[in-house]
Design a protein around this nucleic acid. Structure first.
Lengths: 346, 346
DNA sequence: TTTTAGCACTTCAATTAAATGAGTGCTAAC
DNA sequence: GTTAGCACTCATTTAATTGAAGTGCTAAAA
């Protein structure tokens, strides 16, 4: 159990370390805080805190920095989300001022704005749409040879794909396909649609026509596109600012990790808390052991739940960031809900 | 006028400098080439070449490196495109093996492949489509409230955009708009369409209906999306490998330069030669003064002409790269032409 | 028992000095 | 015109020096 004074020291070291970026010594602590004790006493306390695993040294005679455990304790028990200053709230609100047409735009925009605001790297993961139902399928002829396939879900998501039909292809076949899809697939959840696309549908298609060999691949691809995760990363380059002494290889491997969208979405997917902080190795990713991830979910109305996150150094100003994330998730949510309601109110 | 021996020395220095990445001294030159002369003679010749501006030193007692002018001379008169090895040709062919549906995919893919192949940064600029004509305009209702606008050009380009109509909006209005567009805009070149969209069309629309305030903005945006340049950059990170001693700020400014797609396309736009090499300050961009750009055009059949380019250090192996670019542009062209013909042959 | 002043000791970071070596320019002879 | 030889230059590496920041420990004070 930590004493009041020990807690005070730990808290101060976390604060001062994010402020100065250098190990904090007993003298600095004396000058910059209102702890009433001599430097010697503080040193003794620091020894205790180090023994307990909350602090660590960078070398034998250096000042102290918080350990991962120290940060964990700070985040769990000491931190109080900072009040977000008015300008920043305004920036966020302004950013989402323009109307939007596709959910993807919000995903992109939110990552951009959040990374600008924080100077860290921001990741935005759109609401999961796998559970949504297929509500519409269209084939629209564009000219003699080109047809656009369009797919609509009950959550309002739309995806399309263009393909070229063989010469002499009977356009009536298209109508057959559409009605086939309407009979077999429309109204079903996407997961089920996927399964049917593998088994039954190809057989049925084959029954009605022979020229449509490659067409199924195209339509398949359209569904895959629909189901893929909407994810966007903003401010990758900000990483260069806050990790000066990172070498090129590290940087590259983190960068390419971020391109592997699959890993990323599993990092952000399904979280229970509204705001979650994961510090260093809690992320279970070697290259990110000196990073922390603050992720927040937002309620996207009927679309489900989306996630936004910032990736920064373990020494980031958690209380400020958590305050900010909270505002952000609420604004984002409000924006999306507003959007859907305004649709009804026209 | 340079002597045979001087040319031989210049050529060797260019070659050895790309090989070793360090200034080349008279002794190295003696050992690594078959020039028959003593090191002293070579030194004398190097003095001459330096006076003429083809070589330069990094400090008063260093070996020589080629100057920008030296590279220019090398590229213009000495270089012979290297034969591309079979594996690489195969890699290129394989990369474009799968079918594609949209030109954008080719733009993306070609930049990825080219950057992997060269280990430099690759830029791909799709064919210009401003001169194409609008051949089709459709409004497809997706559900009670959502409509997709689709735009088709004579070059086969398609763009679409989804928007939400006001509640109680009479869907007959959509047909009015479509027929208005068909009367006024279809068949005209896009440039002209743009102009009409500013002046006449809004007035006409207003005449027929009042609820369609925001709709014009949406349609406008659709046209802007269509006209924007198709550009993609691959292997940005490769830059970190070949410019070790570049500082963070430089890196960031180059990186953000590449995000400014406008500058980039003006860098690649309208070139006459099939393959063009621009060295250092010939690019007229301060931050790129130690880079060279090799750009090549490819014939995209009826679509016009596209451009691919690689951005690398001024000391890159030009002959190998030029050989490669030549293969690449031909394969790319072949692929696109094939694609269009296979459409006719079905 | 807790706190504090004082001091010896450790380490990093920055500075200076010296040694090394690759490469040049120039001169004088071939 | 070519070359051997030599003095000189400059970047790079290594080692030594110093100062600042900070610690741990001891012994005295509270």
């Amino acid at each position: 159990m930590l004493t009041e004074r020990q807690i005070s020291i730990l808290k101060s070291i976390v604060g001062l370390f994010t402020k100065y970026g250098q190990p904090i010594g007993s003298k600095t602590l004396l000058e910059e805080t209102n702890i009433v004790a001599s430097s010697a006493t503080i040193r003794n306390e620091m020894v205790r805190l180090e023994e307990l695993g909350f602090l660590q040294k960078t070398h034998s005679s250096s000042g102290r920095i918080p350990s991962k455990k120290g940060y964990r304790f700070y985040v769990d028990y000491l931190l109080r989300p900072a009040k977000v200053n008015h300008d920043e709230v305004e920036t966020i609100q302004k950013a989402f001022d323009n109307p939007f047409f596709q959910l993807d735009e919000i995903v992109v925009k939110s990552a951009e704005v959040l990374s600008n605001l924080t100077s860290y790297t921001a990741i935005s993961l759109g609401p999961e749409i796998k559970e949504s139902k297929l509500t519409g399928f269209r084939l629209v002829p564009l000219n003699e040879r080109k047809v656009m396939a369009i797919l609509v879900t009950d959550k309002g998501h739309v995806e399309d794909q263009i393909f070229t039909v063989p010469k002499g292809f009977d356009l009536n076949n298209l109508e057959k396909i559409v009605s086939l899809f309407n009979d077999q697939l429309v109204g079903r959840p996407l997961v089920e649609v996927f399964k049917k696309l593998q088994d039954e549908v190809p057989i049925l298609i084959h029954k009605y026509m022979h020229t449509a060999e490659g067409m199924m691949d195209l339509i398949n691809e359209l569904f895959i596109k629909t189901a893929r995760e909407r994810i966007h990363i903003g401010g990758r380059m900000n990483m260069l600012d806050y990790s000066e002494n990172m070498d090129v290889d590290q940087f590259k491997s983190i960068y390419s990790f971020m391109d592997g969208k699959h890993d990323l979405s599993s990092l952000l997917g399904h979280q229970n808390e509204e705001i979650q902080v994961r510090i260093g190795n809690e992320l279970n990713i070697d290259i990110l052991e000196n990073f922390s991830l603050i992720s927040a979910t937002y309620d996207a109305d009927e679309l489900g739940t989306g996630t936004i996150a910032i990736l920064g150094p373990t020494s980031m100003p958690y209380s400020k960031m958590i305050g900010l994330m909270d505002v952000f998730r609420n604004e984002l949510s409000k924006k999306i809900v507003d959007h859907y309601h305004s649709m009804d109110d026209y």
